[in-house]
Simulated scan of single mutants.
Amino acid sequence: MTSVQLAVASGQSGQMSRQMGDNHRRFLQTMMSIGIVDDHGAKALYQHCCETHNVQCPPDRLDDFIETINSKLQPLFMQIRKGMSEDNGQEHYALVNMAQTDVTRMSSDYADNELELFKKTLELIVGSENGTVSSTDILNSTDSMTTKKLKKSETEHLLSRLVHDKWLNETKGEYTLSTRCIIEMEPYIRTMYQDQVSVCHICHTIVFQCQICENPICGIKIHNPCVARYFKGRAEPRCPACNDFWPHEIPEIRRPRSQSRR
């Protein structure tokens, strides 16, 4: 974290402190610490910050509250950005460094060969049909590394770190991009993989885990949570683009567990 960022978070900048309340600074300082928080956690944190500093916090003004913070972060090329979990459709808020649009933002935490393997993992996920990659395929990709090759144990440890740091998700040895990674890396992914990456027909953000229209002339992709919401209550689901019958099982709308971070 730079001294300028610390100044914003701690109130050491006189100009910032006149324009931002202590409740805003407490919220920002927490976001700098945790990086990403789900919608329930953001609302709880917003309420906590306002109550701690005896400031009113209208429940429907969270986005306005964050916009005030973002207006002060703009000169620092940072932003608290909103995105959706591909897993359950829940909104998340992540603190994003907009000055760095690729994996160099991770260089202070990871060595060069670790960053190279993360890039390879990203490429494998983007190029897959279902937005996942197995641990075996990741381990095999170390053979083509140009930097110092990672041992198997080092690769496994790195993958655990990437999951812990919320860059990847893992389920039964299958890895997907985390919500944090998608929010932060979307500009980079769109630029680097523009011929491979697709966008959801409903929410228009990049999509990896999804359902696909089986009409070969159409082939639109829709996030699983977007599928659940779009087709809810429809007797005969049809593709929103070509109107062909939608043959996939419609998932239920999941209700994420409420989480509170303070």
Rank of each mutant, 00 (worst) to 15 (best):
Leu139Met: 15
Met145Ser: 06
Leu124Phe: 02
Ser135Trp: 09
Gly131Ser: 05
Gly131Asn: 07
Lys151Asn: 08
Thr146Pro: 00
Val126Trp: 11
Asp143Pro: 00
Ser135Ile: 15
Ser135Arg: 15
Leu124Cys: 11
Val126Ala: 11
Thr147Trp: 10
Glu156Gly: 00
Ser144Met: 02
Ser134Pro: 11
Asn130Pro: 07
Thr146Lys: 14
Ile138Gly: 00
Thr142Trp: 04
Lys149Pro: 02
Thr146Ser: 12
Gly131His: 06
Thr136Arg: 14
Glu123Leu: 12
Ser144Lys: 01
Lys148Val: 06
Glu123Trp: 07
Gly131Tyr: 07
Leu124Met: 12
Asp137Asn: 12
Ile138Val: 14
Glu154Phe: 01
Leu122Arg: 09
Ser144Phe: 01
Thr146Trp: 04
Lys152Gln: 15
Lys152Ile: 15
Leu122Glu: 13
Asn140Cys: 12
Ser128Trp: 03
Leu150Tyr: 03
Leu150Thr: 06
Ser134Met: 10
Thr147Val: 10
Glu129His: 11
Lys152Ala: 09
Glu123His: 13
Leu122Val: 14
Lys151Tyr: 07
Thr136Tyr: 14
Ser153Glu: 14
Val126Gln: 13
Asp137Met: 04
Lys151Leu: 12
Gly127Ser: 12
Leu124Tyr: 03
Thr155His: 04
Lys148Ser: 08
Glu129Lys: 10
Thr142Phe: 02
Ser144Tyr: 02
Ser128Val: 10
Thr142Asn: 00
Leu124His: 05
Ser128Met: 07
Glu123Cys: 10
Lys152Thr: 15
